[in-house]
Design a protein around this nucleic acid. Structure first.
Length: 280
DNA sequence: ATTAATGTTCAGAA
DNA sequence: TTTCTGAACATTAA
């Protein structure tokens, strides 16, 4: 799942090792398919060993370690990846260990159930080229209203689909797209280009409030408990979901209709057909 | 026992 | 150019 809030929480946790040096990087062996490491695993170790970690930042749904001099280790959790300071209980799905010389946190663990996560080593030029613009700055909450509209408002695709397009705005995925649109009271199938000015304002505000609240709650831990907060416990934002996986429950806002599920772009969308209506 | 579904991304095709 | 489809993988529920 990890979307912007979950990746942000991981990022803040592993920031504890900023200033430490990388000792080595280990790939535990298991019967599972190895995760993808680009350009190749050997280079990862050779290039990073002994390097000081100068910073950790989130770019969209990725965690980026800046290692001296100008190397960037990019961790992409994708569906089920998780970066933690504490050893996972389930070692089968442990995919990578980054050993550092920090006295309190000697290891960073990348755990990934499905193994779709990707780890890549980039230099500065490649980072800028490959990741493209962090559409909304290091913190996607800062996009201006005008920028949001300029980027999303040109496509006829449904607004829910546009919100999840990482080239348009980085960090929002399937779960938060539904929650944000409910908060903004916009129908997920509304063509992006036909939102009204007041809907753009509502959307802009909803992006900020939903993501900020989710970060404060340490993210959403769903039923499969794939995502865990840095202390190994659950995130808490799932308790505040208004629509995501709430199909069949009465809408918390209008109490008149039930939340429904519909498929868009092969993904589940949840919304209240009363609070979120198409124009006309 | 199959099959469908699950938070993401991207190549390749339409 | 823009948008859609399927595949990468592991697990669980139906």
């Amino acid at each position: 799942m990890p979307e912007l809030p979950e990746v942000e929480v991981m990022c803040r946790a592993v920031a504890a090792v900023i200033g430490s040096r990388v000792l080595r990087i280990v790939r535990p062996r298991s019967r599972l398919q190895p995760i993808k490491i680009l350009p190749n695993p050997a280079l990862l170790n050779r290039s990073l060993k002994g390097g000081r970690i100068l910073g950790v930042e989130r770019l969209g749904k990725r965690v980026v370690f800046h290692v001296e001099p100008e190397l960037y280790l990019v961790i992409e959790p994708r569906m089920t990846g998780r970066l933690m300071l504490t050893k996972p209980e389930d070692m089968l799905h442990l995919r990578l260990i980054i050993e550092v010389d920090h006295p309190g946190y000697p290891r960073l663990y990348f755990w990934d159930s499905r193994g779709l996560g990707v780890v890549s080593l980039l230099d500065k030029a490649e980072l800028q080229r490959r990741l493209g613009p962090e559409t909304l700055g290091p913190d996607a909450l800062q996009a201006s209203l005008a920028e949001l509209r300029a980027r999303l408002g040109r496509t006829a695709r449904p607004i829910k689909v546009a919100l999840m397009d990482q080239r348009l705005i980085a960090g929002i995925g399937n779960l938060y797209a539904s929650e944000i649109l409910f908060r903004a009271r916009i129908h997920p199938e509304n063509p992006a280009k036909s939102l009204t000015p007041s809907q753009w304002r509502a959307l802009h505000r909803a992006i900020r409030t939903v993501l900020t609240e989710a970060i404060a709650s340490l993210g959403s831990t769903l039923a499969d408990a794939t995502y865990l907060a840095p202390d190994g416990g659950s995130g808490q934002f799932q308790n505040q979901h208004k629509v995501y996986q709430q199909a069949g429950k009465p809408c918390s806002r209008c109490k008149k209709q039930e939340i429904i599920r519909r498929v868009q772009a092969q993904r589940s969308t949840f919304f209240c057909p009363n609070c979120q209506q198409l124009p006309k």
